[in-house]
């Protein structure tokens, strides 16, 4: 490749440098001002504290005899990450409206590394959110497995999940192009995704047609993976969950890399 000859250094290391730099940019912003993320924690907190506590009184709602509040905790965690990442495209539109996106794309960094970086940045926000919800769940006495490997696994799933939906959001941004429309579409798809998943009730309780939707809903695999690591310790389905998540993330990031240039044309 000509690039190696001109810049020196390998393409992969440059790609990684760029992607990590974009993620670092996000981390630095959160360090300056994390108010938005704290406020975004209010909603999942209410799901856990009110919805969770109320439905906890119904026995047998969650499978395997586990208390409902334990059942719903990974679902709420996944939901909060979903919300953060599905609205990530708004930030991209915002950056487009200023010159920042144009500026990022005019650096020698490969375009796809910018997209991966942006997706990773959503992951950084997801981790922040996950920590808040983790802490809250522990405070209200939800019994979670705290094996370091499991917790690490959960964070990896959070990052992949955020990357997947932030990329979807970037694809939407490239099609819709305005912040208002992004708000609208975000509102329109988060709730169906949430309800058509196993986040707040087991799939077995759903009507058959909805069960089919749940099977193709990436959120189901995410919640499933988190539950196996945080609650049951049963890893039988974990490889399938991770594979499904990896695949959808890869597909979404690739589409977003192609779509992003539409935003600046």
């Amino acid at each position: 490749m000509r690039s190696t000859a001109i810049f020196g250094g390998s393409y992969i290391s440059k790609f990684a440098t760029s992607a990590l730099t974009i993620a670092e940019m996000e981390a630095r912003k959160i360090r300056h001002d994390s108010t938005e993320l704290w406020m975004r924690s209010i909603q999942p907190a209410l799901w856990l504290l009110i919805f969770g506590e109320v439905f906890n009184t119904i026995r047998g709602l969650a499978p395997g005899g586990i208390p409902y509040i334990e059942f719903i905790a990974p679902g709420v965690l996944a939901q909060s990450v979903l919300f953060i990442s599905i609205f990530y495209g708004i930030l991209i539109v915002w950056e487009r409206d200023f010159g920042i996106l144009t500026k990022l794309l005019s650096t020698p960094s490969p375009r796809s590394s910018i997209v991966v970086g942006k997706a990773l940045a959503a992951g950084v926000r997801g981790i922040f959110q996950a920590i808040v919800i983790f802490a809250l769940a522990l405070i209200i006495g939800v019994n979670l497995r705290l094996d370091p490997l499991d917790v690490t696994g959960v964070f990896i799933v959070v990052v992949l999940f955020a990357m997947c939906f932030a990329s979807l959001s970037m694809v939407l941004a490239s099609l819709l192009k305005t912040r208002d429309r992004m708000m609208g579409i975000g509102q329109a798809i988060t709730m169906p995704l949430f309800f058509a998943s196993n986040a707040i009730y087991p799939v077995t309780l759903m009507p058959i047609w909805l069960q089919y939707v749940a099977v193709v809903n990436p959120l189901s695999y995410v919640v499933d993976a988190m539950r196996s690591m945080l609650l049951t310790g049963d890893y039988a389905k974990l490889p399938v969950d991770i594979f499904a998540l990896l695949l959808s993330t890869l597909v979404m990031v690739s589409i977003a890399s192609i779509a992003l240039k539409r935003l600046i044309e």
């Binding site: 300056h32 409206d97 200023f98 010159g99 920042i100």
Partner: peptide
């Protein structure tokens, strides 16, 4: 670029 291209949320 014509529009502001520095990031206001960073120093």
């Amino acid at each position: 670029p014509q529009a502001v291209s520095v990031d206001g949320d960073l120093s």
